[in-house]
Structures are given as structure tokens and as C-alpha cells.
Write a protein that binds this DNA or RNA. Structure first.
Lengths: 230, 230
DNA sequence: TATATTTGTGTAAATCTTACGCATTTAGAA
DNA sequence: TTCTAAATGCGTAAGATTTACACAAATATA
């Protein structure tokens, strides 16, 4: 077997955020010397003594100074043998979600060239990152319908209308507000709080929160989260 | 960035087969010199100028001489920094399905140390392959319920009872034979053939076949395959 | 000819989904 | 103060789907 295989291993992160009926993705500016700079997904080479997950977390910390709410491996991209084969890189992509409180914080550390982009205003990206982003979008859409990951894009306490709009926005579907509420409530995994939200107009709405313990308990009993649409 | 990262990239394949109400997995015998031989998933190092998918297909051909019906990336395992870090390997695992006609063919080429194991008679495996196999099982169970991959484990023409038993066996659930048939037929993605099966006893049964074209056409119109159980 | 076995079809009850109606609570305008 | 617009919260009837069965049909074998 070829001892000098010499393929390098990188990790990339697709970090989604959500605010005001808009989905965002976190990008960094590649510094290719002078002005020929592309936007790219945060990421970089894995160090010899760290796990893949540790590598992503380290890169996210270094490049964007962000910690995420949800995190999972997405896919490994490594079929672009087209580029210089002497410099081949495969990339293990990770999919992550943060809540809106993270969207403002930016210029903390050396994360100065990190920036949030609205999902339909993403510029041309470096390497195969556009393809990776597309795959991440697919995963987000799919997973939203069969796992309660929407809550990881919202503040700890949120309005039903926010949850509802999140689903409408990301899945690009119409939902009946009342049926949606009934469905979610029937799962008994979110709870009313005593708090009300500062509102713009209309009847004041209760804030709700996701009870993760309860969800995990139900999971063991065979519960299956699922939101369908017409 | 560290130029001498020196992580090697391997691919592994989890190939499932099905016959007589039994799920099988394809393993190869590692030749570690003398008698200290472990069973392992087929796989090996990726060559510098081949894609990940090509690498799996090549290894499968070399080690087991099998071609598969279904094929997708499963997961990338690379967190065992525990082993000698100077010799670190990450493994991109692929999930594959073959039909029962492939289960017999074995000693064709240099595939002499490849062997099918019943899923609950799998021996201790090399490396982290037991963990990989467990993850593949989860994927198989999940995917069986929301994509029509069961057909890739059966002959081109099959009995309804075979399909039904496949679901019962792999998902370890009881199904009502009549409701299952109705459900599958309602999708209109399988078709009756003129052929009947040579049977052991009871009323002769028609053979059916999966119409992949029709399935793909329906997919575009928003169709969603789904089998649920009590 | 009777029996065991498996296939193929149907149907009623229960459950879940869908499409709405409407009262409630607030801010702000008249 | 009253009216209106906007959004929340609750309910209900019709439709669709799932579930739990009953039973006839076709074959091999005893």
C-alpha cells in the first residue's frame, strides 16, 4: 500500500443562524495575499492529534469565535481530483446551528473577517463550498421536519409565531398557523413560560421553551417528531 | 499550516445482503501475517488520483468481486486519535446493498477471504468496524422506512411476502400483511408481472417488480415514500 | 375429498389531518 | 372613549389515513 499517499484532511463548518424571518450562514474571508479574496466556509486542516470534531470547534473558535447549539457531521467531500493531485485535500463538512443571540457578536477576537450572509445573498464561494452549502441546506430542510432542531435556531424563549415563521421561511411552504400550533403542542415537548414578549401590535403572546429532557425521555419510548406540510 | 499533516485516508464498505429472512453483511479476512487474523469490512487506502467513490468500488472489486445495487456515503470515522498518531487513518464509510443473487458468488477472483455473515453472527471486527457496522444498521433501518431501498435487497422480481418479511426482519416489527400490501400498492411504484413463483405450499403468488422510472417521476411531483409501523 | 397453507380483496371503526370560524387582547387612530 | 387593525388562542366539522379484522380463492398433500 502506498505509504506516501499524501492526501490532506480538512474540516469545514456550515453554520446557520436565523433572525427576522431570514436564514443566515456564517462565512469567512480567505486572505489570498492581496485582493483576490474569496468568501469561504470556516474551516481548515485537521491537526494530527485532534479529533475531527475538535478540529471544527477549534477552527470555529479561531476564525469566528462562535460556539454552536447544534452540531453534526454532514458529508465528506473529496472527489475533486481535478485540482492539483499533488495537493489533494478532502474535506469533512459539519453542519451547525446557532441562535440569534450569536448573530451580532462578531468582532470579538481575530474573527474580524467573519460575516453573516443572508442565505439568498451568499456570494460566489471558494473551492467546492457552494456545493457543500447546497447539501447543508438540504439537510437543514429535511431535518427540520423530523427532528426538533428548529429550536436551536431560536432564542431559549420564543413565540409560537417565530417558530411558525421559521418553518415557513426555511421550508418555503405555507402553514396553517392553528394546525401547526396544535401539532407542536400535541408533542408535549415545549412549555409555556410566565413571560410575555414585547410586541409590535396585536394580542400579547406567551413565550415558550423547548424541554429537551422531556424530548429525550419520549424518544426512548419510541416517540417520533414529525412536521408535515400539504 | 502544517505541511506534514500525514493523516491517511481510507474507505470502507458496509455491504448488506438479504436471503431467506436473514440479513447478511459482507466481511473480509485481514491477513496480519500469521494466525492473528481479524474479520473486517472491505476497504483500503484511497489512491491519490481516484475519487472516494472510485476507491470503494475498486476495493470491493479487488477484495470481494462484487458490484452493488445501491451505494451511498455513510459517515467519516476519524476520531480514534488514540492509536499511534504517527499512523493516523480516517475512514470514509460507504453503505451498500446487493440482492440475493450476489450472495452465493464468492470464490471468483482473489476474493477468497470474503464471506457473508448473518447479521447476528458477526464476529469481533478489526479497528472500529463494529461501531461502523452499528451505524450502518441504523441507516438501513431508517432509510427502509422513507426510501424504497428494500427492493435493492431483493431479486428483480419478488413476492409480496418476501418484501413484507424483509421489512419485518430488518425492522424487527410486526406488520399486518394486508395493510402492508395495500400501502405499498397505493404508491403505484411496483407492478405485477405475468410470472408466478415456484412455491412450497398455498395459493401461488404473483411476482412483482419495482418500477424505478415511475418512482423517480413521482419524486419530482413531490411524492414521498413512507412505511410506518405501530 | 378433506385439510393445511398462503394469497388476494374488502370493510368498518378509530385516529389523524385539514380547513376553517371566531372570541380575545393589545396598540393606535378617530 | 370608541373603533379598528393586528395578532393570539381555542374549537369543531369534514375529509383522509391507518388499523384491525373477516373471509374467499388457489394450490399441495394427506
Amino acid at each position: 500500500m502506498s505509504e506516501n499517499q499524501n492526501i490532506r484532511v480538512a474540516v469545514d463548518a456550515i453554520v446557520f443562524g436565523y433572525q427576522n424571518n431570514q436564514l443566515y450562514v456564517l462565512l469567512i474571508q480567505q486572505k489570498f495575499g492581496t485582493n483576490d479574496s474569496y468568501w469561504a466556509l470556516p474551516g481548515g486542516l485537521v491537526q494530527i492529534d485532534e479529533s475531527l470534531e475538535d478540529a471544527v470547534k477549534r477552527e470555529l473558535k479561531e476564525e469566528t469565535n462562535i460556539s454552536v447549539n447544534y452540531f453534526e457531521q454532514l458529508f465528506t467531500f473529496g472527489d475533486d481530483v481535478f485540482r492539483d493531485p499533488r495537493n489533494r485535500v478532502i474535506s469533512v463538512a459539519y453542519f451547525a446551528l446557532v441562535d440569534s443571540s450569536k448573530l451580532k457578536v462578531k468582532a470579538d477576537s481575530d474573527a474580524e473577517n467573519a460575516q453573516w450572509f443572508k442565505i439568498d445573498e451568499v456570494p460566489a464561494l471558494a473551492f467546492d463550498h457552494t456545493i457543500i452549502l447546497r447539501k447543508a441546506m438540504q439537510r437543514l430542510k429535511a431535518k427540520l421536519t423530523y427532528e426538533p432542531i428548529g429550536f436551536d435556531l431560536l432564542p431559549k424563549e420564543f413565540l409560537f409565531s417565530e417558530l411558525e415563521n421559521l418553518y415557513c421561511t426555511i421550508l418555503e411552504k405555507e402553514i396553517d398557523r392553528r394546525n401547526f400550533r396544535k401539532k407542536i403542542l400535541s408533542f408535549e415537548i415545549i412549555e409555556e413560560t410566565d413571560h410575555f414578549s414585547p410586541i409590535k401590535s396585536g394580542r400579547p403572546a406567551k413565550l415558550f421553551k423547548f424541554n429537551k429532557q422531556k424530548y429525550n425521555a419520549l424518544l426512548k419510548k419510541g416517540f417520533h417528531f414529525e412536521i408535515k406540510f400539504a
